[in-house]
Computed example of a mutant assay.
Amino acid sequence: LFIQILLDWFKTLILFVAGKGKWCYTSQLCAVSNCSGNSKQFTSCGKDSQSPINIVTSKVKMDWNLKPFTFEGYEKQTAKWVLENDGHSVKVTLQESAKITDGSLNSKYKATQFHFHWGSHGNWGSSPGSEHSIDGERYAMEVSAILAGVTASIRENYPGKKVQMEPLALKSLIPHEKNLTRYYRYAGSLTTPGCNEAVVWTVFEEPIELGQQQVQAFPTTVFFSTNLSLPMMDNFRPIQPLGNRTVYKSSAGAILPPAKALLVITIAYLMVTLFQ
């Protein structure tokens, strides 16, 4: 469905808050002791510029200054990536440089890792697991990648487990170059505690479709628990109020209609600033 580039101005992602214990998703409360399932118990998670949001396309504002992006090092990666279950998601850490510039950003950024959000799967079918939505429609996943090289590496994936995987061309994880000029932009936050409101979100319009088996690999082979008793699913934060914020749209192209296929994903890159 849509691709998201999350630009994090902090160099450290804080997942624990002093005095509040660990946080966890509602879907894992029954298996994790001493954790908080309501992220708003963490002070910064209750502020006014939180993510994710529902993007209402009829209310976005055109910004003629939003320019196309330039991706460096996305053609080829050679160093093996590290895939890890951090207890909340599956993340992949890059081992060599890849950068993003332009897009009307003030700095050059370095891609450091990507991670996944997904719903659930059972005999009744699948439920959507994306965090952001467009015109109220949520999608199967909101992830940084979900290609064969990744899904083949997550078998019986439990918290703390790390494996190396062959790198993919980052170019294959984003829309075709001609579609990278159509995107939304808004100011938001991290979607996990501490929910820092220092994030610039870019949401691309172009969808990416995948096979059903690839989508189902996550809620059926990744686990919240080390004894493999609790499959990891529904690891997404609910939609947050937009409030007084404005969502902007780049000027290139018309708004695409929401994807109807279930087997569509979003991509979210966690970037850290390279140059101030």
Rank of each mutant, 00 (worst) to 15 (best):
A259N: 04
R245H: 04
E206N: 05
Q95L: 08
K91T: 09
P219W: 00
W23D: 01
F16I: 14
Y109A: 08
A259H: 01
L210I: 04
P167T: 02
Q77C: 05
N54F: 02
I134M: 10
R245S: 08
A31R: 06
K59T: 15
N65T: 05
G211A: 05
L105P: 00
L230H: 10
C195E: 04
I55G: 03
L1G: 01
D63R: 02
S97R: 15
C195T: 02
I265V: 06
S58N: 07
T57K: 01
K80Y: 14
F218D: 07
H117L: 04
G160T: 12
M62W: 12
V17Q: 09
G119H: 04
N179C: 07
P159D: 05
F71A: 03
C45W: 00
G21F: 06
Q240P: 00
E209F: 02
A152T: 08
V150C: 09
Q113V: 11
V90D: 04
N65V: 05
L228Y: 13
P207R: 00
P258S: 13
T191F: 06
T112Q: 11
C35N: 06
V264F: 03
S130F: 02
K22N: 10
Q213S: 13
T226Y: 07
I239V: 10
T57H: 01
L168E: 15
K61P: 04
N34L: 10
F71T: 08
E96C: 03
H176K: 14
S49I: 03
E206K: 03
N227F: 08
G194K: 13
L230S: 07
S104Q: 09
K249S: 11
P241N: 03
G73A: 00
R237S: 09
I267N: 08
S130V: 06
S120A: 13
L270H: 13
D8S: 10
L147P: 03
G129M: 00
K249F: 10
H88G: 11
G122I: 06
G129V: 02
V163R: 07
K249M: 12
G253D: 03
K67A: 09
Y269R: 10
D8M: 02
V17W: 05
G129W: 02
M141G: 02
E72W: 14
M232P: 12
G119S: 03
V82G: 08
K260R: 00
V272L: 10
I267R: 07
S229C: 08
G194L: 13
N244C: 14
L7S: 05
R245Y: 01
K108G: 12
I134P: 02
T181I: 13
P241W: 01
D234M: 08
E142Q: 11
F71D: 07
L270Q: 15
K67W: 06
G188E: 03
A18V: 12
G103C: 05
S58F: 01
F2Y: 10
I174R: 14
V92I: 07
F2D: 08
V215E: 02
L210M: 04
A217V: 04
